[in-house]
Amino acid sequence: MIKHNKNSRLVHLVRHGEVDNPEGILYGRIPGFKLSERGHMMAQLAADHLADSGRKIGALYASPLLRAQQSAQPFAEKFGLEVNSAGALIEPKNKFEGMRTRGVRAALQDPAQWPKLWNPLLPSWGEPYARIARRATRFMDYALQEVEACQIPGDVVLVSHQAVIWVAHRKLNGLPLPHNPAKRRCELSSVTTFEKRYGRWREVAYVSPAQGLIVSGKDTGAV
């Protein structure tokens, strides 16, 4: 259940569904990584969840990467919207892109890659957490302002990636941005919901509509 002021507009940060990635590649911003068949089902469950909650969606934005665009399609069809591409929602750039998550070529098992790990607080292997937080939260502000300025009824859905959503969550909840990527609470096709009251964002809900599919799914390749 979403606990919020019933008259408020909400912004829902939705993670993409499972990616077709049998080789376990750290895909980052590499183009062409699409949803698996199960990933499409996960994305549909996320859209169904918001529709079943009774929320009206007035605007839909997604990262330009294929897996996010595909994950946004069920929302577009369910609510009769266009998918607006937003570079601010894209996966963070990462120096391990193209490497494997397991096996002899696994990034963290290759001593040649260890210098990239010199500062996990930044992090040194990719886009700084502070920059991710800034672009994500600024876009949340922008998207909300757009629907209000245009007097478009309904909430906003932003389809993005695990790192972007989790760093925004930490920033808006007053938590330190450095974290262990293996312990993010941001499952495939999860929905993290925010409300802005008195000029401040607050998180009002987190749900995992595709939980039943995640048990048998593969969540590899995120950076």
Rank of each mutant, 00 (worst) to 15 (best):
I152C: 06
E146S: 04
V215N: 11
A106G: 08
V11F: 11
E77L: 02
Y27C: 14
S208T: 15
P115M: 04
P178I: 04
K93H: 12
R131E: 14
S160L: 03
R102S: 15
A88R: 09
P128W: 02
G32L: 09
V164F: 02
N21S: 01
K3W: 08
R131F: 08
W118Q: 08
D110L: 14
G39A: 05
S53L: 02
Q109V: 05
V14G: 02
R134D: 11
R38Q: 09
G24P: 04
P22W: 01
E203Y: 03
G80A: 04
Q211P: 00
A136E: 05
N7S: 10
T192C: 06
T193H: 10
P176I: 13
G32K: 13
G103W: 03
R102I: 02
A168W: 05
A163T: 15
P209F: 04
E146Q: 15
F75E: 08
I214Y: 06
S71M: 07
S71C: 09
V215I: 15
Q145F: 07
F194A: 12
Y198A: 15
G28L: 12
Q211K: 15
R102C: 01
R105H: 11
V204D: 13
G103V: 10
Q162C: 07
N180H: 15
Q69I: 12
R55C: 11
E18C: 01
F194W: 12
I25T: 14
F79M: 08
D20G: 06
G24V: 02
Q44D: 14
A106P: 01
G39S: 10
K56L: 09
L158Q: 05
A133L: 00
K183V: 00
V156E: 05
G98I: 11
G174Q: 00
Q145Y: 00
M99V: 06
G154W: 04
Y27W: 14
G80I: 12
K218E: 13
M1S: 13
P209L: 10
L26S: 03
L175H: 00
A86Q: 03
E77C: 03
A136S: 03
R184L: 11
A43E: 07
L108Y: 15
R102W: 14
G17A: 02
S8I: 08
V204A: 13
P115H: 09
R134E: 13
D141P: 03
T220C: 08
H179K: 11
I132K: 04
S190Q: 12
D155I: 00
